[in-house]
Design a protein around this nucleic acid. Sequence first.
DNA 1: CGAATAAAGTTCAGCCTGAGAGGAATTATG
DNA 2: CATAATTCCTCTCAGGCTGAACTTTATTCG
Lengths: 402, 402
Amino acid sequence: MDSGTAVRRSNRSSVLEQLLSGREIDRQELVAATGLSQATVFRVVSELLESRILVEGPTITRAGRGRNATSVRFNGEIALACGVDLGGTNCRLVLTDALGRTIARRNYRTRHDVDARGFGEWLGSCVRELVEQDGANATLGAVTVGLPGAVAGDKTRVVGSQNLPQIRGPEFLVALRGSLDAPVNIDNDSNLALLGELRYGSVPPTETTVLLILGTGLSAAVAMDGEILSGAQGLLGELGRLPLLGREQRLRDLLSGAGLAGYGRSLGYTLDTTAEVFAQPQRFGPLVADSRAAFTHLIDIVALAYEPASILVTGGFSESFTDDWFADTRARLRDLVGVDSVIQRSTLGAAAGLLGAMAHALSHLHIGLGALGALSATVGPGRDEILERFRSYSPETLASGV
Amino acid sequence: MDSGTAVRRSNRSSVLEQLLSGREIDRQELVAATGLSQATVFRVVSELLESRILVEGPTITRAGRGRNATSVRFNGEIALACGVDLGGTNCRLVLTDALGRTIARRNYRTRHDVDARGFGEWLGSCVRELVEQDGANATLGAVTVGLPGAVAGDKTRVVGSQNLPQIRGPEFLVALRGSLDAPVNIDNDSNLALLGELRYGSVPPTETTVLLILGTGLSAAVAMDGEILSGAQGLLGELGRLPLLGREQRLRDLLSGAGLAGYGRSLGYTLDTTAEVFAQPQRFGPLVADSRAAFTHLIDIVALAYEPASILVTGGFSESFTDDWFADTRARLRDLVGVDSVIQRSTLGAAAGLLGAMAHALSHLHIGLGALGALSATVGPGRDEILERFRSYSPETLASGV
DNA sequence: CGAATAAAGTTCAGCCTGAGAGGAATTATG
DNA sequence: CATAATTCCTCTCAGGCTGAACTTTATTCG
């Protein structure tokens, strides 16, 4: 599979990358698109047909005389990819073919009654079950799991996790890998959500983008030049931990559900959810003002730290802020700080993490098949088609299964 | 010069990169170091000897019997590189050979009496004069200028500058390029100072490193994986602009010479320099406390934004902080925030900017000669040798010339 | 002085690409 | 319906490059 010289692999990759969109392309178009010679394209294509990575497509009849071209297309059935969005309460799985076409989705309650090893084996069995039931005997080629925790920069281990302490350390990952006969990759759920936004969302994939996740906690992910930044201990972007200047609180105490609720109670307010805080600003005046000021501060920080073209905001807590407030914040940022970043709500919302895990698994699958630069390639169904498939992807529908 | 196929260029580059250290290396060692075959190394070396990029070195006699190897070395005289550190008051130039060996240094007062075009031509004439007087008829192969201003991410234009408004816009760069017969590159002085620290300082060049420059103003530069981050408008890292939460001031108002002096006066203090503030903490108590708290906050922000292995601190204002204070701040950062970054004073100090400009020019020179990955290569004299040459590089000696 | 050894060169087969010739399929045209 | 025109596909071949093996040259040691 990885035979041949570097030149050969590179040419093979050039051809494959053209076909990862899933389109049916004839050889002449491949010659034009890759810049390779006819002979090379023909040989690479016949090799790929031989190894069943490509399949013959229909003949293409063009206007005018001349022989008809026969197209080829990427063989989606060659392998499966599985993306997993592992959360504190729910565990979401999606199985796709090699072209990123959704085959099946599952939703489980995350188990809390087993140790690290048992948890890894349980997650592995969830994936295996999905593949066996819906995979139509195709082999699983790549699995990527998004985790609610800090993942080391080399992606080899989970350094820490608030919600799922059992995934910390090597045991979980060893057990998971041991129970699956496919390459398993992990990353932080925020990072994968950002990958999802870059691949299937509405931001240009190579522009600097920051994803702010204001949910139960507060975290951020950053991408520059199509690469997602990561730190040695996975703490890069964990701005929720930031102590505020001259105050006892941290940023997450003012900008997350759990944080603001706790802070409110410490001030003597009685409240159940933070939604009511923003619904009754006259009653919770100081809390609302504090939270808004903290949001402004967070935007200032990420604007100057990363100078992003876009700042995407997502997570349940972020719904407390209106679009008008985003626009005001952007104007203030531009005038006061000098950075002009678009501040907008994420288009994918809760689906981003799962879509990112899926995109990551797909990329690794394609690299395994010989597409070297697959990490940044446009893969499979277009954005609109994907969004249509994940249209129903809201927390409510998820809780009730697919 | 750029002839041959991609494979050929790559092999040529592998060989060249080994020789950029300036060491005399025999062909067998090149074979071992590059992993290429003897035949390839011999052909590449004889081509490079032909084009005078390499020259024959002495024969190397090893213990034991056998024919002696004849070494080759990079021909330092093949071209010149010029680094320029353009400041608001001083303009420093260094001319080196292709191996980064210092040939001459100059120091001029920065002119403020000419317009953009005149300024570019003046700077060009400074470089030309240096080359003509000390260059021994070698051709100038690359020039890099570090500027006190924001440089766009594509390095094509100066977006803004406090101290030198005349360099803003395209005219200055056009005039400078027009008056020099060599490739001219520009970058922000903070970014080049960080490059200098990575190349000749005491931090590992591929680890995430943040350079904080606390001088008249406050700015930062960031490197990850050996690459220096940059934003579209050159504002990435300009954390001095950060408005503080719940206060009127910005970070630079508490952490820079000009800022703290102005802030102190606004509070009713009479002071000339900020040095006296830290010298008399009992008299300026609130100021000192504010400034220290701001430093802690800045460290918290860069730690969570970039998760650096090292935070280097430099600039005149930073001398107000003691090494003990750095150690305390690091311990607090580790315990409270969870990020363990070394906080230390820059080893190069005021020389970093010029060394970085020189390193940048050298890299571009080497790329021009065919060393593709030269941007991250270790070049020329070792760190200790460079530091010895720039030992006298303090603001005082610079003001009085070389 | 000759054998041993190590490095310097040289030759050659194999791989891969790109160019081009020629065959095959298809449509336009008389 | 036959022929020309056009496009797609297949095959061959020259050229460039690499790596392995071989020869040559120089030096040391017995």
